[in-house]
Design a binder for these strands. Structure first.
Length: 767
DNA sequence: GTTGGTATCTGTGGA
DNA sequence: AGATACCAAC
């Protein structure tokens, strides 16, 4: 107890641990002992006399939360279990279960995953008779998600001229209406999507019924946030609600690294780090920078440093290592994707032999999950054990989702997506058109589909089948409060006919599906019986109800599934998934333009910066050996494509890379000469060609004006605007549909600096 | 309503 | 290439 944990820390780390009161920002480079600081800080808070349940620690993955708890336990023992440590989503779901009635939800609310969400949106688009080509379901979903993450309600969305204009521009003028209907339908279904778990909590705190907010403000005396650079506006808004109020001690500590922010695509913003500094400056914020890297050798650390310097905006820091030079970075060039697979696998074999590495010391990291296949083939050929992370998780398999849908319905009959999924599976003679009819009926009557089900107009045979179905769900529902989750699940699996259906399928795949179903049931059994998996309710009691089980698995990812087991295998995963992990030998593959950096990001500087941060994350996973590879050609969609080597390869300083004939690399900062630097990326748009603007702006010739595509507008360009004349693009912010340019129009004398939404601006590129 | 074949689309990351 | 969406025939 109260061990000498403080002695295991360096000076900065120790400061970050012992300064437990007041606001703290920890900027933590890769491999700098961030988790250690976070866990020891929590342990230190507990040692100072604070009850574990008064500490809230938010992470992004269950794995991070689990690891944190484990390491706290090493210092303070069993008390660690009572710390409120978990993912944003799981902790918030826990609170929402208790408070659900205050915002008009049942505590047995369903959590909709992406598939459910897509299905709801698809149904709405169909019902509104909208063109499904223009109204791409996923595009609408991400738009709605972005709105929620930016605290924009359907009402605010409908009133927001800018957003509406963007939608008109994208030929989706009714997006606002879909959003409104989607929210209403989720509510009707007693369902929350991933964003709702955040948004509804925010709403609860905002409305503050029965002094709810004060209750949680009083409860969580110390708040800690991991991976703060990955939080979105909404998440930070909730954190502020909890800690930033009059009379608050503001015991909040956020840990993050702007250079490792790789989730801007889902609304994360490093602006939160900057805002945090501003928001808490008046309250004596303390900032600690962890810059010593304990993970990697110098060639690797310096490569990472040099690469990230190509990004424009960042918090100044220099990561260093005292682990010695180590091996240089190796670059593998291959003609084809297949050859890349072979040569990487050869090198893995070499590493195993030469450096006595085990499979578990090695990882292959790629930009997209679809790249795993070729490496799997080669690893199999060499008989090297491997494990692929990502892709379809166990809970996303059809047969598993089917049974889960039944269970969801048992717990919450309002759950429309579950009902749609299982009403005619196994077949009961209720086809798509009948289901649509039912849905329309429910919509116009303001009832749930379940309520309309009994009165459904159908043939005698179908009616009987439906009645049996309703009966089965009902009787299972009655058992929920008393019987254990496993027993209910087994009887539903049998009663629904799912088991019989799968048993009748004697193909290999069919047997596999039955096995998966049984594995799911086993999982529920262990949830009910074993001590190791604990789901605590808001009061800290163990909750083994079916409802708790369903809400728990909805927030699991496949990573949480697989990583628990040991075993000696090479790890194959996306770079995103690798964040926070480390391996002795890391292969970053597919380093080609349009792939890494992704073609989706290639057209905007912000997108490229994020890709570069992703590359930075990949590079810094390596402890001793880093190998980069690319192929000149690869198959995509059955077609051979040729790609240039990634620009990131060029950014690897040659002094840190093994010299090979084909690899040129970059000069390091030290050897770079002045003229080259002057033409480099350091120059900001403000200085480019300033003063060369034509004086005495001529009137714009409207007849010859031809607007350039909005996505081609980039920082530094000179553009023509019909009203404002010629201008210079000083800055472009935002991504994809949301790009905003700051343009300096000399002719507009009142206010020459205009901020313009590129999506609907008519601009012609001059140069 | 169901089945099976053909057209179409896909192209990042994930809680 | 592989999954899904859509349509025509049963």
């Amino acid at each position: 107890m109260a061990s000498n944990y403080l002695e295991e820390l360096n000076d900065v780390q120790r400061q970050a641990v012992v300064n437990i009161d007041g606001p703290v920002l920890v900027v933590a480079g890769p491999g700098s002992g961030k988790t250690r600081v976070l866990t020891y800080r929590i342990a230190h808070i507990i040692e100072s006399g604070v009850a574990p349940w008064e500490i809230l620690a938010l992470t992004f993955t269950n794995k991070a939360a689990r690891e944190m708890k484990g390491r706290i336990a090493k210092v303070v023992g069993d008390r660690a279990e009572r710390v409120w440590a978990g993912t944003f989503h799981s902790i918030f779901a826990r609170i929402l279960r208790v408070e659900a009635d205050k915002i008009g939800y049942p505590s047995s609310f369903t959590i909709y995953d992406t598939e459910d969400t897509n299905s709801v949106i698809g149904a709405i688009i169909r019902e509104m008779n909208l063109d499904k080509n223009a109204y791409n379901t996923s595009a609408i979903r991400s738009r709605i998600s972005a709105a929620k993450s930016a605290l924009i309600t359907p009402k605010l969305y409908a009133d927001n001229e800018e957003l509406r204009q963007q939608d008109r521009q994208a030929a989706r003028p009714y997006t606002y209406e879909i959003y409104e209907k989607y929210v209403a339908r989720c509510k009707r279904s007693g369902a929350m999507d991933f964003d709702d778990l955040l948004y509804r909590l925010y709403e609860l705190f905002q409305r503050n019924p029965d002094g709810i907010l004060d209750k949680y403000r009083g409860k969580f005396r110390y708040v800690l946030v991991d991976e703060f650079q990955d939080t979105n506006q909404l998440q930070y808004a909730i954190i502020r609600k909890l800690v930033n109020f009059d009379g608050s001690p503001r015991n909040v500590c956020v840990v993050g690294d702007d250079a490792q922010s790789i989730y801007a695509f889902r609304g994360a913003t490093i602006q939160n780090i900057l805002d945090f500094e501003e928001d808490f400056k008046p309250f004596g914020i303390k900032t600690f920078k962890l810059e010593q890297n304990y993970r990697s050798t110098e060639h690797i650390v310096q490569t990472a440093n040099e690469v990230i310097m190509n990004n424009r905006r960042q918090i100044q820091k220099k990561i260093w290592s005292d682990k010695g030079e180590g091996h240089k970075v190796k670059v593998i060039k291959a003609m084809t994707d297949n050859e890349e697979g072979k040569r990487v696998t050869d090198t893995i074999l070499e590493h195993k032999n030469r450096f006595h590495l085990s499979n578990r010391d090695i990882a292959i990291l790629y930009r997209t999950n679809s790249q795993s296949r070729i490496f799997e083939e080669h690893l199999r050929r060499y008989n090297i054990g491997y494990r692929v992370f990502g892709g379809l998780s166990f809970y996303q398999r059809k047969e598993v989702k089917d049974l889960i849908a039944y269970l969801r319905l048992v717990v919450n009959q309002r759950d429309e997506e579950a009902l749609r999924r299982v009403l005619n599976y196994p077949k009961r003679g209720v086809g798509d058109s009948t289901i649509e009819k039912l849905s329309a009926q429910a919509g116009s009557a303001g009832k749930t589909m379940w309520e309309c089900l009994a009165a459904l107009d159908a043939g005698a045979k179908a009616k009987k089948a439906i009645a049996d179905f309703v009966q089965m769900i009902h009787s299972a529902a009655l058992r929920v409060p008393t019987d254990n989750a496993y027993e209910i699940a087994v009887s539903v699996a049998r009663g629904s006919g799912l088991i019989d259906l799968l048993k009748s399928d004697t193909t290999i795949e069919g047997m596999g599906r039955l096995e998966n179903l049984n594995a799911l049931l086993d999982g529920i059994k262990s949830f009910v019986e074993e001590d190791t998996i604990s789901v605590l309710d808001a009061e800290g009691n163990s909750d083994r109800s079916l409802t708790a089980y369903l809400q728990n698995i909805a927030l699991l990812t496949d990573q949480d599934e697989n990583s628990a087991e040991g075993g000696d295998f090479v790890t194959l995963m996306s770079v995103h998934a690798a964040k926070g992990l480390e391996f002795k030998s890391v292969f970053v593959v597919g380093l080609e333009e349009k792939l890494f950096p992704s073609f989706m990001a290639s057209d905007s500087p912000e997108g490229l910066d994020e890709e570069r941060r992703l590359f930075y994350v990949a590079v810094t996973r390596a402890e001793q050996l880093l190998t980069l590879s690319y192929a000149n050609s690869r198959y995509r969609f059955g077609q051979m494509r040729f790609n240039e080597p990634s620009r990131f390869l060029e950014e690897v300083p040659r002094q840190h890379a093994e010299s090979t004939a084909h690899f040129r690399g970059s000069q390091s900062t030290a050897e770079r000469n002045a003229p080259e630097q002057a033409s480099g990326a350091k120059i900001t748009g403000n200085f480019v060609r300033r003063g060369t603007a034509v004086s005495g702006m001529p009137a714009v010739d409207a007849a010859n004006f031809k607007a350039s595509p909005s996505d081609s507008i980039q920082k530094g360009m000179r553009v023509l605007h019909l009203k404002f004349g010629e201008g210079e693009v000083l800055e472009v912010e935002g991504n994809k549909d949301n790009r905003i340019a700051t343009i300096f129009f000399k002719a507009a004398e009142d206010d020459p600096k205009k901020r313009i939404m590129l999506k609907f601006a008519k601009l012609q590129i001059v140069s």
